[in-house]
């Protein structure tokens, strides 16, 4: 039963991936796709649609969804709070400001991505130092709230002075999240940070359970919980900043997917963290496919994730209450 569950989990992103490659304004049949992927002589249009548009979007969606979900599980364990999410420590807000500022300055796609990454990663440094020095979770949460609040205000200031005909719509659409900017260059610049951050979190998956114990117990065992906490925060920051730099703000995934996975795999992070990678990746591919296929023009990704996520979250809360 457990093996079947794991197999279905791995097959889920693969299945929605194939679905995502096939559907859209230009329909690609399964036989076209098979011919193309097996190195056959496919039509040029099919090749262009799959390799230049849909495959990069699919890869980016998997990385973003999987990365945010792994980061979300880790944050919920780190703060021992089911409402924690990757943006709890303010990294996403800082990265958003970096992107908005670069757009205001007229930077190109590469400049926007780099600025978002730089702001996101730079902000994680004081958060980590606070975590290590104060050794207090509450202090770190409060610092995250302050950082979030300051950078949200700065984003509002950038929007206020942006040109309403040109820059403001671009910034607003960008902040609502989209995979439309996916191409090889975007992915190459951001993916290493997600792979590194999520990879370390996956390697540390069992040890992250220790963060739920009282610090005194950890320290008596010879562990250094504040160091582990700082490493987890650094990894979550890398993932969050990289996701925002590639596809803007995408809410709900990092909060919702961990809860869905826990309902099926229990609470042990050894199982939940890797399962969240596949579940989050698959969900994001599905959300992106809906975002570009539901209407004639593309719907912002965070609209889809929030509309689908809120009722599912309510269902989970209801189930938790009935169990408790």
């Amino acid at each position: 039963m457990k093996k079947l569950k794991n197999l279905l989990l791995v097959l889920f992103p693969l299945a929605v991936g194939v679905f995502s490659l096939c559907v859209g304004r230009y329909t690609v049949t399964l036989s076209d796709l098979w011919e193309l992927l097996s190195g056959g002589d496919a039509e040029k249009a099919v090749r262009t649609v799959v390799f230049n548009i849909r495959l990069p979007r699919m890869v980016l969606a998997f990385l973003a969804g999987g990365g945010l979900s792994v980061a979300g599980v880790s944050m919920q364990s780190l703060f021992f709070n089911p409402l924690a999410a990757p943006d709890t420590i303010g990294i996403s807000s800082a990265a958003s400001f970096g992107a908005a500022l670069a757009m205001l300055m007229g930077a190109g796609a590469g400049g926007v991505q780099l600025s978002a990454l730089a702001f996101g990663v730079a902000v994680c440094i004081p958060v980590m130092i606070s975590g290590i020095k104060k050794r207090s979770i509450m202090g770190t949460v409060l610092l995250g709230m302050v950082i979030s609040s300051v950078f949200n205000a700065l984003v509002s200031a950038v929007k206020y002075i942006a040109d309403p005909m040109d820059e403001l719509p671009a910034i607003t659409f960008w902040l609502m999240g989209s995979m439309a900017r996916a191409n090889v260059r975007t992915i190459a610049a951001g993916a290493p940070f997600i792979i590194l951050g999520a990879g370390v979190l996956i390697l540390l998956r069992w040890r992250i359970n220790l963060l739920m114990l009282p610090d005194e117990e950890c320290r008596a065992m010879g562990e250094r919980p504040h160091i582990l906490r700082a490493v987890v925060m650094l990894c979550v920051s890398l993932v969050s900043a990289a996701v925002v730099s590639m596809c803007g703000l995408v809410g709900w995934v990092g909060l919702l997917v961990p809860h869905m996975v826990r309902a099926l795999w229990g609470a042990d992070n050894s199982a939940v963290i890797p399962a969240s990678l596949f579940a989050g990746g698959g969900m994001m591919i599905l959300a992106d496919t809906l975002a570009r296929c539901l209407t004639a023009s593309e719907i912002p990704l965070s609209v889809i994730t929030a509309l689908a996520g809120a009722p599912v979250f309510l269902l989970i809360l209801g189930k938790m209450r009935s169990n408790g």
Binding site: F80, L213, E216, M221, R262, G266, A267, D268
Partner: peptide
């Protein structure tokens, strides 16, 4: 080994 006072919420594990 240290067993702290029972004040924190129980683990979800």
């Amino acid at each position: 080994s240290f067993v702290a006072q029972l004040s924190a919420s129980p683990l979800p594990l």
